[in-house]
């Protein structure tokens, strides 16, 4: 179809606008991460788009090096928070995905009615704050405060409805005859799940897991409430990056932010080919 020139111009203008809105903050962060203190601090002479004197000082600083006399060395480096975030998000995702997938499969194949699936998702309608106070008390009682495993557990619980709902949609879409064919050919129910259903669900599992991981990875509130100092996560640690001399350490925050952006980006690229539709293509006649 041929479109008119004004229409095309308008179309590209809208695309450019959307890209700018999403990408400029990220660009700004990336640029800031490589700026020396003079360029990002409030006392800095002038605002620059690109670092005039690019430096890795911000990265060195958050990992504990003395980079300028103006800011005292950090007593806690970014290493442990990165580890905390990774452990909590990965294991939280594992918990949510394994429990959510099992629940979704069970309800998709053997469940009846809508109430149970809906109840599970309604958990998400509560503001997290409403349940965080009791959770804090319970976690304190169980000795789970300020530990990555305590965080992983609550992450798994909070993101379970997402994992469940995403996987249920995928299981519902899978034609039941494929599993029945395996049943008829001599498989047990469990074997059908392991040999047929799970391999067919690789793409949906990958995309759901990434979604859940990003939810966990970007959490701030729960990390803030359930950790104190030993196992603070990246967002919580980031908020603490300031000094009495210069106030907010924007350069260091940007450097940490850039590091924090790496796992989702890598995951996104890795599973990109799985994100395409067509999970059962070729299994059935059209």
């Amino acid at each position: 179809m041929r479109r008119s020139l004004p229409f095309e111009l308008f179309r590209y203008a809208m695309i450019a606008l959307a890209l700018a809105l999403t990408l400029i903050p990220i660009l700004w962060m990336a640029s800031m991460a490589f700026k020396p203190i003079a360029e990002w601090s409030a006392s800095g002479a002038d605002l620059t788009w690109w670092p005039k004197a690019p430096t890795l000082d911000n990265f060195r600083y958050i990992f504990g090096e003395q980079t300028t006399a103006l800011i005292a060395t950090l007593d806690r480096t970014a290493t442990k928070p990165i580890l905390a975030s990774l452990l909590a998000a990965v294991f939280g995702t594992l918990i949510a995905m394994s429990a959510g997938t099992a629940a979704a499969y069970g309800l998709s194949r053997f469940g009846s009615g809508q109430n149970l699936p809906l109840a599970l998702t309604q958990l998400r309608l509560f503001p997290p704050m409403a349940v965080m106070i009791p959770v804090m008390i319970m976690w304190a009682f169980l000795g789970l405060i300020d530990s990555w495993w305590g965080l992983a557990l609550i992450y798994g619980i909070v993101t379970l409805p997402f994992a469940f709902w995403l996987m249920k949609t995928f299981f519902d879409e899978m034609p039941k005859e494929i599993e029945e064919a395996a049943l008829v050919e001599g498989c047990s129910r469990f074997r059908v799940f392991m040999k047929i259903t799970l391999p067919m669900m690789r793409a949906p599992l990958a995309s759901s897991a990434m979604f859940v991981f990003i939810l966990n990875w970007s959490d701030y509130l729960i990390g803030l409430l359930l950790t104190t100092k030993e196992w603070v996560t990246i967002p919580v640690y980031m908020a603490s990056l300031s000094s009495s001399m210069t106030g907010q350490l924007y350069g260091a925050k940007a450097a940490l932010g850039l590091i924090a952006a790496i796992p989702p980006v890598i995951l996104g690229i890795a599973i990109q080919k799985h994100l395409v539709r067509g999970l059962t293509f070729g299994a059935l006649k059209q």
Binding site: P175, E180, A181, I196, P199, M200, T280, A283, L284, K285
Partner: peptide, 9 residues
């Protein structure tokens, strides 16, 4: 099966 139900993977 009517829809053949081959294993796509």
């Amino acid at each position: 099966f009517q829809n053949l139900a081959l294993f796509p993977h």
